[in-house]
Amino acid sequence: MNTPKIAAMVGLATSLFVTAGAGAAEYNFKLHHFLGPQTPSHLETVAPWAEAIEKASDGRVEIEIFPSMSLGGTPPELVGQARDGVVDIVWTVNGYTAGLFPRTEVFELPFVHRNDPKATNLAMHDLFEDELRQEYKGLEVMFLHVHQGNGLHTVDKEVRSPEDVAGLKIRTPSRTGAWTIEALDAAPAAMPVPSLPQALSKKTVDAAFVPFEIIPSLKLEQQTNYQIEGADQTRFGTLVFQMSMNKGRWDALPEDIQQIFKDHSGPEWLAHLGQVWAENDDEGIAQAIAAGNTHIVLDQAQTDAFEKALEPVIARWVDEATKSGIDGEGLLQKARAAIEKHVE
């Protein structure tokens, strides 16, 4: 990461994105993320969270949001930017830094997370202190959350069985996603989601694992013809996102300011996020259907065939975790139980 270059760009980016009254607060934070300012992620996750904290602080806190990597660097560098103190807070995808958060990966696995972001969000919150915190050194995690889950978007291939996926080149942002693709005898292509439209238009990928909520932002209905998911909205895994602050910056805050951040990052917020991301997914698939795309919902037998085909992905994660000193099987069972606890 070119830290001096990124730091030098802060002044310019501030002039573009600083909110009114910057500098008047006692505690000013720069929040950096990779998606555009008109995406649902920015408008319904990042911005409302920052605004709620500012309001609760009675003006003592100000959070300047810098979308679209406007402070420089690439999405995989966001975690490092927060750890190094180049920025104060980042919202990013864990999978962009492959292998850095192996314990948290358990929640991304296909048929561990199925179709309920609220349940998975709350499950991660339940297990965070005892099982996950240790892998976020240099960071103070505000919250972790997931999206509805990965649907399969194909350019011109109708998919109803694992065999239909074989041979496709498929975009994924994470190593668990890559394992899923490999288990289906397809070829993974790693890339952040902003790069996806160009990759589809240039035919460098045939398909992508992404949620339906991103369809309007990236205009994926123009690049693909088929959107596929399992029975009862079952998905092929998911992604974990984190909102994290530089640990040194966090430790220097007074307890009352820390408490404001905690109050707006807990179970109530995580349940709300789960609902928001599920609703955004419904809106995304509606747009694709309105554009004439084909929405394929697998029946239960077809979904079961994918679950069986993807069992090796879970076994691979357990094996990788065990080799690195993690009780993979134990954590898998804890994750499943925690999710099930919150399914309504």
Score class of each variant (00 low, 15 high):
N2A: 04
I6L: 15
A7G: 12
A7T: 13
G11H: 13
G11V: 13
G11S: 13
A13L: 05
T19E: 14
A20R: 12
A25W: 08
N28E: 14
F29P: 07
K30M: 13
K30L: 13
L31C: 02
H33P: 06
G36C: 08
P37L: 11
T39V: 08
S41E: 15
S41L: 15
H42E: 13
H42L: 11
A47T: 07
A47V: 11
A50W: 05
E51R: 10
V61S: 08
F66Y: 14
P67H: 08
S68L: 03
S68R: 04
S70K: 03
S70P: 01
G72F: 02
G72S: 06
G73T: 01
R83N: 01
D84V: 14
D84Y: 14
D88C: 04
I89H: 14
V93P: 00
G95Q: 12
T97I: 01
T97D: 04
G99W: 04
L100S: 11
L100V: 11
P102Y: 08
R103H: 11
E105Y: 00
V106M: 07
F111Y: 09
F111I: 02
V112I: 03
N115V: 09
P117M: 13
K118W: 14
A119V: 04
N121Q: 11
L122A: 11
A123Q: 07
E129Q: 04
E131M: 00
E131F: 00
L132C: 02
R133D: 07
Q134G: 13
E135W: 04
G138F: 03
G138I: 00
L139P: 05
E140W: 03
Q148P: 01
Q148A: 14
N150P: 01
G151V: 11
V155Q: 08
K157L: 08
V159N: 03
V165N: 11
A166Y: 08
I170A: 03
I170E: 02
T172F: 02
W179A: 08
T180W: 00
T180N: 00
I181L: 05
A189F: 13
A189T: 09
P194H: 09
P197E: 04
A199W: 10
K202A: 15
K203W: 08
T204M: 14
A207R: 07
E213H: 09
I214S: 11
I214P: 05
I214V: 15
I215A: 13
L220K: 09
Q223G: 06
T224P: 03
T224F: 03
G230M: 01
G230E: 01
R235V: 08
R235A: 12
G237W: 02
V240C: 05
N246L: 00
G248Q: 06
E255R: 15
E255Y: 09
I257V: 12
I257D: 04
Q259N: 10
I260M: 05
H264S: 06
S265I: 07
G266A: 07
L273H: 11
G274N: 06
W277E: 14
A278T: 15
N280A: 13
D282L: 12
G284C: 15
I285Q: 04
I285A: 04
I289P: 02
I296W: 13
D299Y: 14
K308F: 03
I314E: 14
W317F: 06
V318I: 15
V318E: 12
G325M: 02
I326L: 11
L331N: 13
L332Y: 09
K334V: 10
I339R: 10
H342C: 02
V343S: 12
